[in-house]
């Protein structure tokens, strides 16, 4: 049997079978208990809502994706800059780090009205909310990655008379990459949460009809099947973001994959 066939059989088939099973159970459940469609719509109703609202869902998803991606990219580069300053200047780290931790514990939803007061409703506020919620994993992981380099490696670079610049580019930054990848994986998920929460509050009255805004709208109008479709779209968006971050991360960390093939040559 081909190896990809075995993969399909082993890891894709069981969840797929379960999915079909749950779909049937969902369908029968709504029929059998006669649940009103505005409480819990049937799978067909969700499908119909998806098809009917397809252009809006796609447009809203793209807007939300743009806000989340902008917020994430801002948090990645600004967070990396902060991590760099923290790792190079220990006084700065010692004075600012406690505040970075403190701000991380502020519930983002609590400061959303404040951000809207300052920046008004619209795309910019949503990006800022996504940015604030997703920056801390980058700062904390980046700082650890840039500063906790193995002392022997550091000695080695000193012994070979490496400059501070060489130590940064050839030792600290490559060492920080696995940490930044781990931070970015958390951060992309948070940026979508930030964008959707932002759209709850700052997405109306403008041209920004993101997923968060439509979710509120659908809930207020008791279009529950449409609401389901939007939740599904949000989930897919999260999956795509996470998958992209994972893909980039795996590419950057491909050196970690030990291939068993090289052991066959039998050297001790």
């Amino acid at each position: 049997m081909h190896s990809w066939l075995r993969i399909i059989q082993k890891s894709l088939a069981p969840p797929f079978v379960l999915f079909i099973f749950l779909l049937i159970a969902w369908h029968l459940g709504t029929k059998f208990f006669a649940i009103p469609h505005y409480i819990f719509p049937s799978p067909q109703a969700v499908y119909v809502a998806t098809v009917n609202h397809f252009p809006e869902i796609i447009q809203a998803s793209l807007l939300t994706a743009a806000a989340a991606l902008s917020g994430f990219l801002l948090s990645f580069f600004i967070g990396l800059g902060a991590a760099f300053l923290f790792s190079e200047f220990s006084l700065l780290r010692r004075s600012c780090y406690p505040y970075a931790i403190f701000f991380q514990t502020v519930p983002i939803v609590a400061i959303v009205p404040l951000i809207i007061t300052w920046f008004d409703v619209g795309f910019q506020s949503i990006v800022i909310i996504a940015f604030i919620i997703s920056i801390f994993p980058i700062i904390t992981n980046g700082t650890v990655g840039l500063s906790e380099v193995d002392t022997n490696l550091y000695s080695l670079f000193t012994l070979y008379s490496a400059s501070r610049w060489q130590i940064l580019c050839k030792l600290k930054i490559p060492h920080a990459i696995p940490y930044l990848v781990a931070g970015a994986r958390i951060s992309v998920g948070l940026s979508i949460i930030g964008a959707i929460v932002g759209e709850f509050y700052a997405g109306y009255g403008t041209s920004h009809y993101g997923l968060g805004y439509l979710i509120l709208l659908a809930a207020h109008q008791i279009k529950t099947a449409y609401l389901f479709a939007l939740i599904l779209a949000s989930t897919l968006l999260g999956l795509i973001f996470f998958g992209a971050a994972n893909g980039v991360g795996n590419f950057l960390l491909r050196y970690r994959k030990a291939e068993a093939s090289s052991f066959r040559k039998g050297k001790s």
Partner: peptide, 28 residues
Amino acid sequence: DIAFVFQEATLLPWRRVIENVYLPLELR
């Protein structure tokens, strides 16, 4: 030149073997 060999191999995991060997010259 003084070469130092540590108890652990102390290699840069993100570099291929040949790039690890080149490191001392590269830094100079």
